Simulated scan of single mutants.
Amino acid sequence: MDKFNKNCLLSLIVVIGVLNVNQVFALDGYQAPLETIKNIEQPDPLIALNASFRSAYADLRSQLQATQTPVIIQVGDKIILFNKGMRTESMAISPRYTELKTIAHLPLALYVMLSNETNKVMTDVQLDKLRDYRTLIGSVSNALATLNFSSEQLDRQGRLIKRSLSLIDTVLSHKIISKDALHQFTLSQRDDCLANMSDAAEEQINTLDHQFKSWVKDMTPEERQHIRVVVGASHMPRIGNLAMQYFSAALAENFEGRYVEEGSSKDNSFRLIYGENVFDEEKALRLLGTHLIDADIGTNFFNDAQRMHRDLLSDAAEKIIGKKIKSKEIVPLQ
């Protein structure tokens, strides 16, 4: 594929800083009340006590992070191994995965562009966006033959593109689309989208499996036994996350396919951890340290490694709220 067409395909892929007290007081020559300054200079002993706990917790977490190897982190399109003081990085997805998923996103992109514009005449700005998107789709369509799809896959991409272009042309011609027509379009694309997702899933599983096996073959039996994996991703794909499913099988954890809640047993070793909204390796390592500390606290205080992985107030809250509902202190909205 030439550079232009590659760029067209890629085009389809879809701090908060907190001012410290001194900064706040310095703004616009603000003069803090004397009592406020005294409170800052002489902090509440409970606040100081809590700060000491947090500092000790952070120190222990750092110590645990430094001693945990091997650790595998999968975030975004990368998979990273930390072992014996070395960091090794590889790709977690293949080019074919990206191609399949990107083209499957065509109907989704059109739905997002049109779903809030149904049953009304579209503006010139909205129509221009559709024209620009049509140009991108057309460029990808011209490049399909260079992507080395199987014949079945090539036909499928052609159908996804053809239906998408047809919808755009209809909207551009009439400057309006009904909600029913948009729904019929999404239904017409569903099976081909799911087929692309199935092929993409197999591509990613094969990529993860190849890389995992290449790392594991050089490990000692003891290292294999102590591998820990952190998968970082967003909130929405947590349930049934592909990488979580793969590593649960590869690590000989309990595997039941899609599941609502991972790792619910009291003796969980936390070899496999999902990091919600964790997108970089530093945060993933910190999350691993947090899990290990909280599992140790839960075991030693409550004989339950999972206890600190839910709100410590949850049991009491359940009882108190139940009583208040029964006594009608809390009345559910009607």
Rank of each mutant, 00 (worst) to 15 (best):
K120D: 04
V140P: 05
G158T: 04
I161V: 13
I161W: 04
T170C: 09
H235C: 01
V171L: 03
L208W: 11
N142Y: 07
N116R: 12
Y111N: 13
Q157I: 02
M197T: 07
T102H: 09
K175C: 03
I103M: 11
Y97S: 01
P221I: 12
Q211N: 10
M122R: 08
Q184G: 05
L182K: 00
R163G: 01
L144H: 05
I177T: 10
M122S: 06
L147E: 07
K162F: 15
R96K: 14
H183A: 12
A233Y: 13
A145E: 09
S150R: 00
F212V: 08
V216W: 07
Q157L: 10
S214T: 02
S188N: 05
H210Q: 14
D128F: 06
S234A: 10
R163D: 02
G158I: 04
N148I: 00
G158V: 05
V231G: 03
M122Q: 06
T220A: 08
S173N: 13
R131A: 03
H210N: 09
I161F: 04
N119V: 01
T135L: 14
V230F: 03
V140S: 05
A200T: 00
V125I: 13
D192I: 00
S166A: 14
H210A: 12
Q225H: 11
S178L: 07
L182T: 03
S115Q: 13
V121F: 07
S198W: 02
L110E: 03
Q126E: 15
C193K: 07
K120R: 15
T146M: 11
V121C: 01
P107D: 06
H210M: 12
T207L: 08
D180T: 12
I103N: 10
R163P: 00
C193I: 14
T98G: 06
D192N: 07
R131C: 01
D191C: 01
R96Y: 04
K213C: 05
A200Y: 11
V171G: 04
H235D: 14
Y97V: 02
Q189L: 09
N142Q: 11
H235L: 14
V231P: 08
V230R: 10
L172G: 05
L110G: 03
K217D: 11
F149P: 09
Q225D: 13
E203W: 05
M122Y: 12
I137M: 03
S173H: 08
A109L: 15
E202R: 10
V125Y: 14
K175R: 15
G158F: 07
L136Y: 11
H174C: 03
D132K: 10
A104C: 08
L127T: 10
S94A: 00
K179F: 01
T220C: 06
Q204S: 02
T123S: 15
I176R: 15
Q225M: 12
R96T: 00
S173E: 13
E99K: 06
A195Y: 09
A143K: 01
D199S: 08
L182S: 07
R134K: 14
N142M: 09
D218E: 15
K162Y: 11
F185H: 04
V216N: 03
